[in-house]
Design a protein around this nucleic acid. Structure first.
Lengths: 225, 225
DNA sequence: CCAAAAGTGTTAGGAGTACACCCATGG
DNA sequence: CCATGGGTGTACTCCTAACACTTTTGG
């Protein structure tokens, strides 16, 4: 039934995290031609028995050892010529990793992997530059009307850290008082009986309240800053 | 390089239009097994030399004879088992057709094609029910922060018709005065020297002003009703 | 003259934005 | 004591939402 020469189907991942208050992306170095030695987004072929999302989960697990993270389909790229080896259609996903879970897993193959600041990353092979910038754009939009930002922080965080996440991704400073009022208004943060002390006045720690959040979920959250 | 048994890759289309103030979708009746005689979304295999979007354009042209319409990638569906014949990954697109351009093209194959009201359509085979509802949801969201609504109307239209489009898709009544004020504020409609007369007071006809619109494009349009 | 749709303003409430100072701690 | 980040309130503007009557035409 398939037409002649079906294309290969891969899944590519744009894995984001926050490191020292900057948005980082996971890159791997190719060990084989084409583009040997150049940096690319992690990815691989889909297997027969798995869904696209499971393929993305599996790749993510293989690269980082992290599970249960925010994962969302981004876009499907399939231009002929995007891969010199032949027709490859890639379904791109992006993932958000909490900043306390970013250790990379011991790698089984020869390729190196590293977190790179999005604002200053090595050139990428294939059309991965394009995929990355599309993912950043999506993340930026998503940030404005959902609560994905929390996915990038550990379970407990300060309001300063949260604001830094938003500022890093949106690329502009936010007003501290307005930011805090907005969050208070949303009522999805739960203060915990603990403070973080480092440089300056100790900061109240908060947790994201899944309970309160799910109530809002149906209503639809608008989250502009 | 490809893994064993690469999946087939198809493009499926959710083609929307407005007919007598209701949202309609284009469906075709399968002429061959599986699901012979059942209704599905139009679609087909991608060709070697074309991009995904070109494949979608081509399918759309074949089905409706319409070109230069709003077309946007929706989502890629690839669960194993979504097609009984084997692994098929489908990249779904949705398209918006102006209501004065909805005649279907003379069909070259045996299948029937028809416009069905989304609110009352025949059951769909494969996972096309799922694809359709996802498309409706996307359209609804898109309507709230962009100007896609105009794509569903002929070049000249009345404010009543435009409001009816929004109401049909959003599924709720809108306040006439607020709706009109909002549009006046956006300033992207150009009144033309013509009125439409039918049942009741004649209505001013408007055109979408591409010139005024592109100015806004960079600024970013928010379009809530 | 009646049915049908077009057209038109005001008000009250909520959200966004701009803005500056004091507080608690570690070094 | 000083550097560092934490924490707080008010005023203005703008957008949204609610709401009802008159106008113009065809039949």
């Amino acid at each position: 039934m398939p037409a002649a020469k079906p294309p290969a189907v891969t899944v590519d991942l744009v894995v984001f995290t926050i490191r020292d208050r900057q948005l980082h992306v996971l890159l791997v170095q190719r060990g084989i031609p084409p583009f040997e030695g150049q940096w690319v987004l992690p990815g691989g072929f889909i297997r027969e028995e798995e869904t696209l999302e499971q393929a993305a989960q599996r790749e993510l697990d293989e690269e980082t050892g992290v599970r249960d993270v925010y994962l969302e389909q981004l876009f499907t790229f399939g231009d002929p010529g995007r891969d010199p080896r032949g027709r490859v259609v890639t379904v791109a996903y992006y993932a958000l990793i909490a900043s306390d879970q970013t250790p990379l897993v011991a790698r089984t193959d020869a390729r190196a992997a590293q977190w790179s600041p999005v604002a200053n990353h090595p050139p990428l092979a294939f059309d991965h530059e394009h995929i990355l910038s599309y993912a950043v754009e999506r993340l930026r939009n998503k940030l404005e009307y959902t609560t994905v930002g929390f996915q990038l922080l550990p379970r407990r965080f300060t309001l300063g850290e949260l604001q830094a996440v938003y500022e890093a991704i949106l690329g502009r400073p936010l007003d501290k008082r307005n930011f805090r009022r907005k969050l208070a208004l949303l009522g999805i943060l739960e203060p915990v009986k603990e403070h973080r002390r480092e440089r300056g006045r100790p900061a109240q720690l908060f947790e994201f309240s899944a309970r309160k959040f799910t109530k809002l979920k149906d209503v639809g959250i608008i989250f502009p800053f």
